[in-house]
């Protein structure tokens, strides 16, 4: 009995096309994308607070310019690592459209991934104005000058994207069990806000809540925002950076595996009960 190509092979072969289609889609929705980008006001809101707070002197080693660099870069990191797969999955599961995706020989997860990845070029483009502001206001002074560190920044950002995509997809998959999981996602988002260094650089906690500070380095949230930012600002030497990169890679891998398990079980359930 001859067997056709494995689904992995099909997926790999189809991936470039999926990316191309996804890119065209992203271009078509560029106006919405700009509006979404403009809704990322949190870094600026917090910059205003901490900038004023640091007027009396640096906080935990962060002076006013460095805070500016931190939060403006945080805006850009947020753009580059943004995904929306949890919304799409919730929508498609509620309306039953997921069935159409399941009929195709390509894994729906690969499809979602391609769509979210394909928006990246446009997101980079849209982030350019903010990068220019950053260069103009801060310049190169506050950033690391070590090329090896920057290599690790790139790696850290890639892993951050994976962590975000995987956790979103896991929560999206939960909609297969719960009808709707968007409120669960909001909860996760709340934890991200508080513990990732998005509202304030985590080193602010070091002196006052050392146990919490260290614990947060073991959670995935820090790697979605705070870690790449601190790397850029040259706050970690190579050895420390490698150590954290290792933890980040473990999280990406672990969440990826968890997604595979949850997804498989969820689809089985979906097939059994239908939409």
């Amino acid at each position: 009995m001859s067997r056709g190509p494995s689904s992995l092979a099909i997926t790999l072969r189809a991936f470039p096309t999926l990316l191309r289609v996804g890119f065209a889609d992203a271009v078509a929705y560029r106006a919405e994308m700009v509006v979404w980008m403009l809704t990322t006001t949190m870094p600026l809101v917090n910059l205003a607070l901490w900038h004023t707070a640091a007027a009396g002197g640096p906080i935990a080693g962060f002076g006013q310019t460095q805070l500016t660099a931190y939060f403006l870069a945080s805006f850009i990191v947020r753009q580059l690592t943004g995904c929306w797969v949890v919304w799409e999955m919730n929508f498609e599961i509620r309306t039953g459209r997921l069935s159409q995706r399941l009929l195709r020989p390509v894994s729906p997860l690969a499809g979602y991934m391609a769509e979210n990845l394909a928006a990246l070029p446009l997101r980079v483009l849209l982030s350019l104005p903010m990068a220019l502001v950053l260069a103009f206001v801060v310049g190169g002074r506050e950033f690391s000058h070590d090329p090896a560190i920057w290599l690790m920044v790139v790696l850290a950002l890639c892993l951050a994207w994976l962590i975000i995509f995987f956790s979103m997809a896991i929560l999206g998959t939960l909609a297969l069990y719960l009808e709707s999981s968007s409120s669960l996602w909001f909860m996760w988002q709340g934890l991200f806000f508080a513990f990732s260094g998005y509202l304030f650089p985590l080193p602010f906690l070091e002196a006052h809540a050392p146990r919490l500070f260290h614990a947060l380095h073991g959670l995935p949230f820090y790697y979605q925002s705070g870690f790449p930012l601190e790397l850029m600002l040259g706050r970690h030497d190579r050895a420390a950076a490698l150590h954290y990169l290792g933890i980040e890679a473990c999280w990406a891998l672990g969440l990826g595996l968890l997604l595979a398990v949850v997804w498989r079980a969820g689809v089985k359930r979906w097939n059994a009960y239908g939409a």
Partner: peptide, 13 residues
């Protein structure tokens, strides 16, 4: 939370 961090770091507006 940010407010608490704010206070513990002795910052002021």
């Amino acid at each position: 939370l940010p407010l608490w961090v704010f206070k513990r770091n002795g910052a002021a507006v």
